[in-house]
Design a protein around this nucleic acid. Structure first.
Lengths: 130, 130
DNA sequence: ATATGTGTATTATAGTATTAATACACTAGA
DNA sequence: TCTAGTGTATTAATACTATAATACACATAT
C-alpha cells in the first residue's frame, strides 16, 4: 500500500474519449508538471483497474503505450515507474501549450453559447481553488 | 447555396470523441444561444459531409439523433431545420451550466500541469477576441 | 519452497464508429 | 416531364474499444 495508489487519476465514462487515452493524457500532464517524478511508482494494473472500475487490460494497454513513448519503464515482476529518462521540467510556456486544447474548447463552446468573457473568468476564478 | 452551409461547425478528428457527438454538442450549444433559431435551415447532409470530409451517413446519424431529441425537424424532400418547438432562450445561468464540463477540464488539466491561475486567465482573455 | 504481487499474452465476445456504394421517396423549379 | 436537390435505408466491410476468464514469467519476502 504505497501512495502510488492514491494518484488523482479519474476517468469520465460519458466523455466519449477512450479510457486508455484519458489515462495517458493525465499521466503525461502529471509528468510534465513533476506531479510525477522519475522513479515514482505507478499504481498496479489491478489496483487501478479496481479503483476506476474498468478492465485490467485497459490499464495495461495504457501502460504499454506509455512505455513505448518512453514515459514509463517496466520493472519485471515489480511494476511500472516513471521513466528516469524524462526531459527536464517543462517550462511554463511549454506546459501552457499542453493546456491549449482545453482552452480552445472553452472559448469555442463559450462563443457558441454566447457567454460573456468576464463571467467565464469569474467562474474559473471561483472554482479554481474550490 | 444558402448561408446555412457556412455554419461554423468543426470537428477534431484526433480528439477521440465520435464525430456525430461533436456535431450534436455544437448544434445544441448554437441553439441554446440562438446562434441557430427555430426555422433556420441546416446544411444538407451531402454538403456538410464534404465540408467536414466525412461520410454522409455520419452526418445523417447526427441529424437523426437530433431529430429524435426534438432539436431538428425534417422536411421531406427539402432538408432539416431547427425545430420550431424550442424552449425559450436559455438563461445565462443555464448556458453557463452547459459550459461547465469544458471549464472542469481546463481547471483539472491546469492543476495537473501546475499552471498559475492568473496566467490562464490572461491567455483566455487574449484569445477570446482574437 | 511458498505465497503474493508484478505486467503481460491469449482467446473470445460484444458494442460502437466509420466508410463505401447503391437505391429509394420526396420536393422544387425549369 | 425532367433534373437536381433533399434525407434515408440497405448491405457490407473495417477498425477500434472494452470486457471476460485464464495462464504465464518474473520478483520479493516469509
Amino acid at each position: 500500500m504505497t501512495d502510488s495508489q492514491l494518484l488523482a487519476l479519474e476517468i469520465s465514462p460519458s466523455s466519449g474519449v477512450p479510457i486508455y487515452r484519458q489515462l495517458m493524457d493525465q499521466v503525461r500532464r502529471m509528468i510534465a508538471s513533476q506531479h510525477l517524478s522519475p522513479g515514482d511508482p505507478m499504481p498496479s494494473v489491478r489496483h487501478l483497474a479496481i479503483q476506476l472500475a474498468v478492465n485490467p487490460m485497459t490499464i495495461s494497454k495504457a501502460y504499454s503505450l506509455m512505455e513505448a513513448e518512453g514515459l514509463l519503464e517496466r520493472q519485471r515482476g515489480k511494476g511500472m515507474i516513471v521513466s528516469s529518462a524524462q526531459p527536464a521540467q517543462l517550462s511554463e510556456k511549454e506546459r501552457m501549450g499542453l493546456l491549449q486544447p482545453s482552452i480552445d474548447k472553452v472559448i469555442s463552446d463559450a462563443k457558441q453559447l454566447d457567454l460573456d468573457l468576464d463571467q467565464i473568468l469569474n467562474v474559473i476564478k471561483q472554482q479554481f481553488n474550490a
